[in-house]
Design a binder for these strands. Structure first.
Length: 276
DNA sequence: TTAAATTCCTGTAAGC
DNA sequence: TGCTTACAGGAATTTA
């Protein structure tokens, strides 16, 4: 599923392919995917706009559009969403919800089997005010995200560490894969209270988070479900995951069977020996 | 205020 | 073989 590294990969690829392109037409098959504004307004307002920039915030893809004071087309991929740029003549896959026709003969296509994704259009302030774009926590790769900052975010919290890492208001961009991977690399049990981390442990977690995210970006993200990048290609980081998806198999560090528990409604894999 | 549970959705895999 | 059921999970919503 797309988390920060996967969304970063898509944003970087789209930047070189769609910035400067104008949207000629817009076809929307599934109105329910559009959370703001109304589906009709969404379709009408996209046609004729030029894409000025493509960026990422947390797991959100942001496309800054010409006119109307820098409105954003916002795409969240949910679990199974893909946002690809392909030639218009490429065969159309199933579960296609939105197609934007560009002025160079290519199409931006939103496909999503489980429909957990969402599409938004509007000025950032309006999306925040409407409550359709949440107020996100810090970017874990931002220089301002220091070990001390992470320690402050966790201090006093009694929820399990993993639950806090998954909370986008605490830190933006983490999902089930990289939360588990970071806890393992930091040697920290995901079910211990977030507030129980010492300054030193928080620093280990901070370094593990940055390390695993940067490594995943370098490898084009993880394709464990049906994640594909903007070209339709899978990532390579899934081959390097140490705990996610490996429940019951031996720990790659000590050989003990990896445990699986449920935290914050998600299956959580960790090593009872290596993580304390 | 915080934490936990519930809901949405459909392909896949396990079980009978 | 074919059917039913459980499961996967991001985030909004509801409940405690």
């Amino acid at each position: 599923m797309p988390e920060l590294p996967e969304v970063e990969t898509v944003a970087a690829q789209l930047r070189s392919r769609v910035v400067g392109r104008t949207i000629l037409a817009c076809r929307l098959w599934t109105p329910g995917m559009v959370r703001h504004p109304s589906p009709d307004a969404f379709v009408l307002r996209l046609a004729g706009r030029r894409i000025e920039a493509v960026t990422r915030r947390g797991k959100y893809l942001l496309h800054r559009l010409s006119g109307c004071g820098g409105e954003l087309l916002v795409v969240h991929l949910g679990m199974t969403g893909t946002w690809t740029c392909v030639p218009a003549e490429a065969p159309e896959p199933g579960h296609l919800h939105l197609v934007l026709e560009l002025d160079d003969g290519c199409q931006l296509r939103y496909r999503d089997t489980r429909r957990f994704g969402r599409l938004l259009l509007g000025a950032e302030a309006d999306l925040l005010a409407a409550g359709v774009l949440p107020r996100l926590g810090p970017e874990p790769l931002d220089p301002a995200f220091t070990p001390e900052a992470l320690h402050r975010l966790l201090r006093g919290r009694r929820a399990p560490l993993k639950a806090l890492l998954l909370d986008q208001r605490v830190v933006a961009g983490l999902g089930n894969i990289y939360a588990d991977e970071a806890c393992f690399r930091a040697g920290l049990r995901p079910d211990r209270p977030g507030g129980s981390l010492s300054r030193r442990s928080a620093a280990r977690l901070h370094d593990a988070l940055r390390e695993v995210l940067l490594e995943a970006i370098a490898n084009g993200g993880s394709s464990v479900d049906d994640y594909r990048d903007a070209r339709g290609e899978p990532g390579r980081q899934q081959e390097r995951l140490l705990v996610y998806g490996r429940a019951g198999r031996p720990c790659l560090r000590c050989g003990r069977r990896l445990a699986v528990i449920r935290l914050a409604g998600r299956s959580t894999v960790f090593c009872r020996r290596c993580q304390r």
